[in-house]
Amino acid sequence: MTPAHDPPGKAKAAVGASRAVTVQGEAARSVLDEADIARALTRIAHEILERNKGAREVVLLGIPTRGVELARRIGERISAVEGSFGGVGALDVTMYRDDLRLRPTRVLGHTEIPESGIDGKVVVLVDDVLFSGRTIRAALTALDDIGRPRAVQLAVLVDRGHRELPIRADFVGKNLPTAADERVVVSLRESDGGESVVIAKREPVGEGTS
């Protein structure tokens, strides 16, 4: 069965819709445009190669939903430069979150680990926005159940500060000082139709990753 047979549920559509409406309806400030995002990802790809002296042992795992697409794009850039590459996958962390009981049930994402596994590899987690750090904590716990990487690194498109846990990113597209009541909205062509990073006023109940 492929997911294409059915829409992935109203939830995702609703997320997209509310996203677009609020961003347009408020004084949203654009921070990165399409070219900026592309340049940031290219730089991150090269930094990953430099830090790990190649990509043979590197596995990129994107965190749904937008992290998966970002990981794919970084992976493309790495493959273009380097011959051997550990692969790209996805890691859904929903079941490992610490806020499940505080919010209505979340829709699960997709997990896909490259054939060769992650044991002994360098796993680079990829997400769109680094905020409280709780998503990354959940991802680290999720990795425990899949294997034992030699090292885990973190790449994010935007680091917006306000950490609640001792977690930091190794590769950052852009450091973005924000107020706690602001929202960082990342849009990618595949999931949202456009390419941008904007800062908007936060909704009463916002999204986990922003």
Binding site: G9, R101, P104
Partner: peptide
């Protein structure tokens, strides 16, 4: 079991419309 027990609303239908999250 996940859909009935995991969330605050513990509800299958609460997952669907994003707007309802405000109630949680």
């Amino acid at each position: 079991l996940y859909l009935l027990l995991a969330g605050a609303g513990s509800a299958v239908d609460d997952t669907v419309p994003e707007q309802r999250r405000g109630r949680a």
